[in-house]
Amino acid sequence: MFASFVHTVYTLAFATILLLVVGGALLAVTARNLIHCFFGLVGALLGVAGLYYNLGSPLLAVMQVMIYIGAVCVAIAFGLTLTRKQGEEGMRPLDIKAAIPVVLVVAMLSATLKSLAGREIVASARKIDESRIGWMLLGDYLLPFELISILLTVAVIGAVTIALINRRI
């Protein structure tokens, strides 16, 4: 009786997370108001953090919150508050161009499902040590890690250049 109650609670929690992910993502692509899109995105990312937690990796979940919501979304919000309300009429959610990502996503999903078909999916029960991630990043995957940092530096320099175009210092 008690165990089944706990089970129900966990199921409900999982359903909430799914709802957050799917609903947030839908809101992010369909809402007319830019800030509604933004908060849809935040909700979807929070839901993904919940999924990570459910899969047994709290570290990844916390990092998802810290990086994607605490950093990426805040950067987006910073851009949003500096943009002018302009050309809102031109943005229709059901444009013909919107079909392109839909086709891509459907193709990717079907490919993934096809490759997974027939296999048994087991969530990894093995606990990943945080320090191992660090060793991996600075050992085996050092080159990709450094490449990403170069990419970020290039992005920062590009942003500064774009910002300086109209400044004429």
């Binding site: 916390v62 919150v65 810290m66 919501i69 605490g70």
Partner: peptide, 9 residues
Amino acid sequence: LLVVALGLL
């Protein structure tokens, strides 16, 4: 990490 991440919210 949890406390810091949520503090940023």
